[in-house]
Design a protein around this nucleic acid. Structure first.
Lengths: 111, 111
DNA sequence: GTAGCATTCAACCCAATGGTTAACTGTAGC
DNA sequence: GCTACAGTTAACCATTGGGTTGAATGCTAC
């Protein structure tokens, strides 16, 4: 999980591209929950939430542990770190490059 | 752009969820390019690339400047920073919360 | 075994994606 | 004007996405 393949990044960013799923991740940040607990605040069917969890799981953003007839769903922060690293790397790179450009355009003497 | 709405984050993460689009962003990190230059390395039609650029533009990840019959496409690092901040915030939050537990459960294998 | 709860699966609906080709809209240059 | 080039739009196609409802699974408790 240190270095993400393209497909893994596809899955991660796709999982993050839905408001409900990001909200679920926020909820899980507070504490682990069962599927039913996760679904409760949302105005969609349990089946819909189950699908969202599948997307999050495919992205490796959450993992589950069966406990009796329940499942405990919890976050997988390492995966978030992968995405964050991807963004941080490029953001830093781009900013650095554009800073130089901006300096040039604004007439800084150091060409 | 400092604080993103839910829809803006939807658009940003969706834009990032495609390998070709991330690759285009990488290309643009090296230098600004015209649409034609952007399209050249990819094995899809110009129309397909044009659509990808539209997705990136909707997410405010790139902007364009018309110059004659060309367009200069360039990155918009501020938007990347928004997404990065979102991830960094939650990643840090989750990691902090889970650190103790993780250390206990599996020792530290981070990276 | 049966009842009941937690969760998933199956089948469907419709909108959106990512791709194509072909037609269209500038703009530049003759 | 006409031609050529840069890029977008239109129309289409196949696949995926997110939602639904209802049946099926799996576990617990009686």
């Amino acid at each position: 999980m240190v270095n993400c393949s393209a497909t893994e990044l596809d899955n991660i960013f796709h999982a993050l591209s839905d408001t409900t799923r990001r909200s679920i991740l926020r909820d899980l940040a507070k504490r682990e929950r069962t599927v039913g607990e996760i679904a409760k605040p949302y105005d969609v069917s349990l089946a819909a939430v189950s699908k969202h969890l599948k997307v999050l799981e495919r992205a490796d953003l959450i993992s589950r542990e069966k406990r009796g007839s329940f499942q405990i769903v919890r976050l997988n922060p390492a995966t978030l770190r992968s995405a964050e690293r991807w963004l941080a790397y490029y953001e830093k790179f781009w900013t650095r490059r554009l800073d130089a450009l901006q300096d040039m355009l604004e007439g800084n003497e150091d060409e």
